Amino acid sequence: MSSLKLLLIPFLLLATVSEKAQKLHNDAFVFDAHVHVINRQFYHGGDIGTRVSDGQFDLPRAKQGGVDAMFFSIFVTEDYYPQRLETKQTFRLIDLALTQLERNKATIELARNANDIDRIHRSGKIAAVLDLEGGFDLDGDLGILRDLYRLGLRSAQLSAHNWANNFADSCCSKPKYNGLNERGRAVIAEMNRLGMVINVSHASDESISQAIDLSKAPVVATHHGLRMINNIPRNMPEALMRKLAAKGGVIGFQIGNEFHNRKAFDWRTQHAGKPFWDTTDIAKREKTMSIEEIDKHVAPQFPMVGLNMPDEVLFGPEDWIAVVEKAIAIIGEDHVALGSDFDGGPTLPRGMHDISDLPMLTEAMLKRGWSESRIRKFLGGNMLRVFREITK
């Protein structure tokens, strides 16, 4: 497996990553907790197994980046919510995800639990854990949740991305329940019973806190950030970090500048005219569009990549690793993980272009004096441990 990874690393990447870092990255188990995979193909066609020249993800580049497992994240955008088409869109995306996985079964395979991940890893393939970003049903219908579980879904967002659903408040919309209502509590209980990952990224502070209290299993924030670095609602405050870690949870760190580089966040907000989570224009939109019309409206935003910011605004891989170190100082090295959000919109650290550049993070960790044990935990060990506990 390690030699296969090494052969797939292009010469340019080898020239920018030391031999020591490359060897460690090849040997480590790399488990990315949040990668946008299927939306590009849904809106524009193509195959995840085909290398493309834009965006941040495809399977050939994932292999080059040394990825062994990932949360294969599908994204139901808020555009489908006003018409209450979120459930139909979820099933449409999962249908395509399963079709693409079957088409690329020589390279990637669906994993339903940690034993599957172990088996798939031994075969030299990438393990794909189906993860839903957005709302599976704004009302939290448990029957729909169970149907999605039967299809292979093993992780779902508690809130409906940056939109308030009818059972859990989001980080970035007007609260309805100051956290969870009775149905939200029922959703958590059912996800525990099924053995599903409760993904609290995009949920409000109150929703996250109550989910941690209620859940019998660890809770995961697949792609999050530190509010102490950038005081925005999408990031997690220190008290919640401690609470999540105390119950065995893990925080995956989103790789974008917008989360942890205030200068870049302000630059983006100034040029976009609003924060990246603002969905008020969707809420105001006329509710008469057909689903096909919504598809055409949404399509241009995929693949989602960051902005072309000036180099002096961007931080580099070592700066990003320094952010993770601040989290480790608070909650320890057993509760942090990689949750990149590739093709989900992050403006990557300076010098990184896509998922094939993941070894640059290992290089940065070594330069900052991380032990091999800590690096292995962050790259995938912690996420695999928690996923094993949740799905057992």
Rank of each mutant, 00 (worst) to 15 (best):
S2W: 12
S3R: 14
L6E: 06
L8E: 15
L8V: 06
L14V: 11
S18F: 10
E19C: 02
L24M: 10
H25Q: 11
I38V: 12
H44M: 06
G49H: 12
L59D: 04
G66E: 05
V67C: 11
D79L: 12
P82Y: 03
Q83N: 12
T87Y: 07
R92Y: 03
D95A: 08
A97R: 05
E102M: 09
T107M: 14
I108D: 07
L110Y: 05
N113M: 09
S123F: 05
G134I: 05
D139G: 13
I144P: 08
G152I: 04
S155W: 08
S155E: 11
Q157D: 13
N166A: 11
F167A: 09
K176I: 03
E182V: 13
R183Q: 14
R185L: 13
E190T: 03
G195S: 10
M196D: 10
V197W: 03
I198N: 06
D205E: 13
A211V: 08
S215Q: 03
A221M: 03
M228H: 14
P233E: 06
E238M: 09
L240R: 03
R242P: 06
G249Q: 02
F253E: 00
E258D: 11
N261S: 01
A264I: 03
Q270Y: 15
P275R: 10
F276K: 06
T279N: 15
I282N: 07
I282L: 13
R285C: 12
E286C: 13
S290A: 06
I294G: 07
K296A: 14
A299K: 08
P303N: 02
E312K: 14
E312M: 08
V313C: 02
W320M: 10
F342M: 09
L348K: 04
D357G: 06
L358R: 12
M360N: 10
L366D: 01
S373F: 07
I375E: 00
G381K: 00
M383S: 07
M383V: 03
F387W: 13
